[in-house]
């Protein structure tokens, strides 16, 4: 293994017009870590993810992946290195069956590299992957049109699409939002399993209780700035975090 951290973010800045979305963001992520990225609405969490994955270009700063500068790379190249993300707003192909939605990530050059050139039957692989995230094999749910699926399944589909790319770093953008407690409880073991496989994970979450059960470390953003970084207990004790979340006393 290399001496470099898996991901390094250095002095990152991004503004949209006059709004400073990200200001001087610095952090490093070690292999196998599960990082929670939290903060109030509009604090720049999703922007940070967009910067890392290349959907948005930073104004300043650099992003290093295993020591390699990937700043402002186009998204498809970032993915090929092994960084996969999910979107907060899931937008599947509604008219297609769920398993057909898996075909596009399975068509990715990244997948071809990983399995030594080719995947056999993409449909079969798609069904296997969906089973991993809880689409019961014998039920018809994987064959149903995505438009007919409840939100919980759509989120699982989104997660399966990221898993299909066999990433080393997964960035999950509000995977739990809009889900019931039971649904979240059924997704948590999947994330635990991904961790056991050695995946590094960044989770953006508003569902702090669930997040804190699995996160090793938490970074708190507020107005685009990092206001806390550390293990869960220390961070939540911090005065600044309390102010950001609850308002100043």
């Amino acid at each position: 293994m290399s001496d470099f951290p898996l991901l390094g973010v250095r002095r990152l800045y991004k503004n949209f017009g006059g709004v400073q979305a990200i200001q001087d963001l610095n952090f490093e992520l070690a292999e196998g870590e599960l990082l929670g990225l939290i903060g109030p609405n509009g604090s720049g969490k999703t922007t940070a993810v967009n910067l890392i994955t290349g959907f948005v270009k930073p104004a300043q700063g650099e992003i290093l992946y295993r020591g390699r500068d990937i700043t402002a790379w186009p998204p498809y190249k970032v993915v090929r290195l092994g960084i996969a993300r999910t979107f907060q707003m899931v937008k599947p192909f509604y008219q297609l069956p769920a398993y057909k939605n898996m075909i596009i990530p399975l068509y990715s050059p990244r997948v071809k590299q990983m399995t030594g050139g080719k995947y056999g039957d993409r449909n079969a692989v798609a069904l296997d992957l969906l089973e991993e995230v809880g689409f019961e094999r014998d039920a018809l749910v994987a064959y149903k049109a995505a438009s007919a699926l409840p939100q919980g399944y759509l989120k699982r589909l989104e997660l399966a699409k990221a898993i299909a790319l066999n990433p080393d770093l997964m960035i999950l953008d509000e995977l739990f939002s809009g889900l019931s407690l039971a649904e979240v409880a059924s997704i948590l073991p999947i994330i635990e399993k991904l961790r056991q496989q050695g995946k590094t994970i960044i989770m953006i979450e508003h569902r702090l209780k669930e997040l804190f059960r699995i996160a090793d470390r938490v970074i708190v953003l507020n107005f685009g700035q990092k206001i806390a970084d550390g293990n869960v207990a220390d961070v939540m004790e911090s005065r600044e975090v309390k102010n950001a979340y609850l308002g100043t006393e």
Binding site: P75, Y76, F93, I104, S108, P109
Partner: peptide, 24 residues
């Protein structure tokens, strides 16, 4: 075919296709 599915995917949601490591 799967190739056509990728093309239709670009029409539907090109960000999601880019996010699959595909050069749209």
């Amino acid at each position: 075919s799967d190739f056509g599915l990728v093309l239709k995917g670009i029409n539907d949601n090109d960000r999601s296709v880019m996010n699959a490591g595909i050069n749209i």
